[in-house]
């Protein structure tokens, strides 16, 4: 499951992550294009007990969220 949250205003990237994780509890991948969204998703997923790795893709960030 992969989501494109680029260009979304706060708190949409986190909400998209939340919604996606409840449908795919094993993990999701999310693409964002700013540091704020990257940090917010990372904080949210970590608080939910997930592992998060961040991969820089040019000016975007791909977050891989796994159990």
């Amino acid at each position: 499951m992969s989501i494109d949250a680029r260009g979304r205003a706060c708190p949409e990237p986190v909400l998209m992550t939340k919604k996606s994780l409840s449908a795919n509890p094993e993990g999701v991948e999310i693409l964002v294009d700013n540091v704020t969204a990257m940090e917010n998703i990372k904080r949210f997923a970590t608080n939910q007990g997930y592992q998060v790795t961040v991969e820089e893709q040019g000016e975007d960030y791909l977050l891989k969220i796994t159990k």
């Binding site: 706060c10 708190p11 986190v14 909400l15 939340k18 704020t36 949210f44 608080n47």
Partner: peptide, 16 residues
Amino acid sequence: RLCTAGGIRDAILLKD
């Protein structure tokens, strides 16, 4: 990222 509305919003919506 200080935000007066975001503070209350995140606390209610995300428990953050």
